[in-house]
Simulated scan of single mutants.
Amino acid sequence: MTTRHVLAGLDGSPQSETAAMWAAAEAQRLGAPLRLLHVWPWLNGENADRAEPGDLRPAALDALARVADRIRLAHPELSVETAVRPDDPVDGLVAEARGQEMLVLGSRGLGGFAGLLVGSVSLAVAARATVPTVLVREAGPLPRASTAAVGDVVVGMDSGEPGEAVLEFAFAEAERRGAGLRAVHGWDPAPAWAFGGVMPPPVDIPGQEGTKAALLSQHLTRQLANYPGVAVVEDVRLGGGAKALLDASAGAELVVIGRRERRHHIGMLLGPVAHAVLHHSTVPVAVVPHL
């Protein structure tokens, strides 16, 4: 049986090193090996006898080894591997992540060696990866190794189509951390138009909110049967999905959002809520693909 790794992409920046440490703690919780990976086109093949002018492979391997040594000191029982891949960063990371437990990236790489994992790269990977992809900010909280009281795992939900894979991932993360789960659904009533402009929507807001809360509870109940030890808070609020998630995530361990899988790469692959959360969240964000 093929071993599933937690995969961390590194580019030599402080943000990617923070992401690697986050990935190490996650791998320990999962009981999975950790693989540190650097992807860049100008790398010699794995069996190259010597470096050529402009080849970045020796520098990449040295940098990966230093991070691996730091991780082994912090997690001596964790299996840590390093690898380089000569490829386009987005294509290479997406390809290496297939079949793994998850992919972890720094969310604001600012250069490193050769500029890997700048914002556009990490966003493109999160939009295409077939496994959960976690983007970690350098200033974000690192996960705790113990199961003592911790911040919530916050999951954004569409009350109509929540995505069972997204919910399952969020429940499993909360269980591993000994954390609570806050399920957030933000919504805005549709505006009404009149001769004088936009009018307040003629809807029963408390009634609609109650309907949405009932749908949310119904979806959560199915997962609660598999994770009875996870304490769940249902959070339905006005203000739109992105604002609701960002407001609810203060002090959280992790924010979980969904991304619908598409068969082609034309047009926007991450919705506006996902974009806003990825750009503005101060805590790690997991993007989970679902049907």
Rank of each mutant, 00 (worst) to 15 (best):
F195M: 11
V150R: 15
S217A: 14
A183G: 05
G197I: 03
S146L: 09
A183L: 06
V155L: 04
D188L: 15
S217T: 13
G140Y: 07
G151H: 03
V150A: 14
P141T: 08
G210N: 14
E164R: 09
D158R: 06
H219Q: 10
M199Y: 11
A183W: 01
G160K: 08
A170D: 02
Q208L: 15
A174H: 01
F171N: 08
Q208R: 14
A148D: 14
G186T: 05
G207A: 09
A170N: 00
V184D: 08
V155W: 01
A139E: 15
M199Q: 15
W187C: 00
E161V: 05
P200T: 04
M157T: 04
L142A: 15
R144Q: 13
P189N: 04
W187Q: 02
G196F: 07
T211L: 11
A165P: 01
P202L: 10
T147R: 12
F171C: 10
A148W: 08
V153D: 00
A139N: 07
A145Y: 03
M199P: 08
L181V: 14
E175N: 13
A190G: 02
G207F: 02
P189L: 02
V184F: 06
R176K: 12
A192M: 15
D204W: 07
S217E: 11
E161P: 00
R177Y: 08
P202H: 06
E164I: 02
G196V: 12
S146W: 11
Q208F: 15
V184A: 06
P143R: 02
V203G: 01
G180K: 12
H185Q: 03
